[in-house]
Amino acid sequence: MATAALDSKLHRTLRFYEATNGKKTVMALTGAALWGFVIIHLLGNLQVFLGPGKLDQYGEALRATGALLWVARGGLLVCAALHITAALQLMALKAKARPQPYVKKVPTTSSYASRTMYLSGPVILAFIIYHLMHFTFGVPGIHPDFVEGAVHANLVKGLSQPLAAVLYLATMSMLLFHLYHGIWSMFQTIGLSHPRYTPLVKKAAAGIAIALAGGNIAIVVSVLLGIVK
């Protein structure tokens, strides 16, 4: 077995990323940024409850920021790319670290959320691509009647499709699990753990994950029930 050399020709940033701990830190920090986006995205979308005009105005205001919007989009794209790259590399390592599976293996105390991160992650990625085609690009066939700029009307029409609504609800429940494990886990990854605070962090993570997924679910359900028209 190779012995890890302490001196290496690699640049220190790459040297840091080369280690599993480096990749995990990148996942924690980019995860935090993407989590921030989920919060802002939900706060923006909740304006749907303030009447038909509000969401359209918000959309216009966002587009009016011009270059700033593209900087934010670029930043998110970079974060997502790094998050996914690190996840894929760690998944590959996982496969290499135990090529022969157990005949029998029973999980004990681990949460469903923690064991399904490699499932909830790809589900969320696939959903984001679908979601962008649905409401951002309004791809014909995916959105029934997309009108550029008519954010509120697009949302109501889009979510009135039963299949789309089911997809949104299913993914939001996966997002809930991904956020719960991700939020408390990022503290552990960057070295913050304490018998007094970690249980609180876990509870807060559960509360935040439920609130974020619940907020999005409330929008879908409200459209389905005709509360938002």
């Binding site: 077995m1 302490l6 080369e18 390592l93 004990t108 105390t109 681990s110 923690s114 991160m117 408390w184």
Partner: peptide
């Protein structure tokens, strides 16, 4: 240096990566 050396050796041995699941602590 210890943390750098031991983590890098742990990686060189082809152990997998911690995902904060907690099965280790339980067993």
């Amino acid at each position: 240096e210890r943390s750098l050396r031991m983590v890098r050796q742990m990686n060189a041995e082809l152990f997998g990566n911690c995902t904060n699941i907690g099965e280790c602590e339980a067993t």
